[in-house]
Design a protein around this nucleic acid. Sequence first.
DNA 1: ATGCCTAATACGATTAGA
Length: 277
Amino acid sequence: MRLATWNVNSVRSRSARIVDWLVRESVDVLAMQEIKCTDAQFPRAAFEDAGYEVVLHGLNQWNGVAIASRHPIDDVEVGFPGMPGFEKGVEGLDLPQEARAIGATTGGVRVWSLYVPNGRSLDDPHYAYKLDWLAKLTDATRAWAASDLPFALTGDFNIAPTDGDVGDPSLIPGLSTHISPAERAAFEALLAAGLTDVVRPLVPTGYTYWDYKQLRFPRNEGLRIDFVLGSPAFAAAVTGAAIHRDERKGDAPSDHVPVVVDLDLHPEDDDDRPMIF
DNA sequence: ATGCCTAATACGATTAGA
């Protein structure tokens, strides 16, 4: 089973590129972020014609998350319990939730497609929202950890957890989001809820995002901010991982590239195969 | 070329991105 996450930065502007990649790479399950469209606007036919079922949550031109799968999709959940909302210029509780989280069960795993708030700047209300969103996600993850079904939080976490994940010189320590101690602590707290980054051990270096501006990709000045965080059962099934850097090349790429994980969810079946000598 | 930013919307200037 091959699972991937990809911030596609508008599914409508590059649906052909996404579906071509899915088919070429034999991806079973793709979690997408920043689809930037509503359900009615989603290019469903392009995915279905290639054999993928799609579930999504998109409210408007901002954010939006989806899961496409070659396997049946069940138990779809929009938003996680306790997920905070946000409205620019408005403070208080019970603000409208944004389209940043969708969970589903497919292909033998429980997968979440997450688009963590950007934060904008350290003194912006969006930054406090980001930290609160991550804290509530951590609370929800602790509750999910009791489940036997392998599960993974995948997506654009908008945090570069280590200095080695930062190649973009425009990010200044002490002044920039994505690298602040509070964001990194929030990411570590999420892992401490019972998850591990299943890609990093197999792909120790490399970025998943390069800004469109200022030749960031040709200069390889990127960020590693897209992750697959797996439960113990999920992590135990991982047999391979890759960051598809080449998807940043060519015509009209997303500014993020896919992060891919290969899983063997039923290793005991291997013992049942006829032995041929 | 991996090349100096891109996408959606109120179709032009604004908002957002990280």
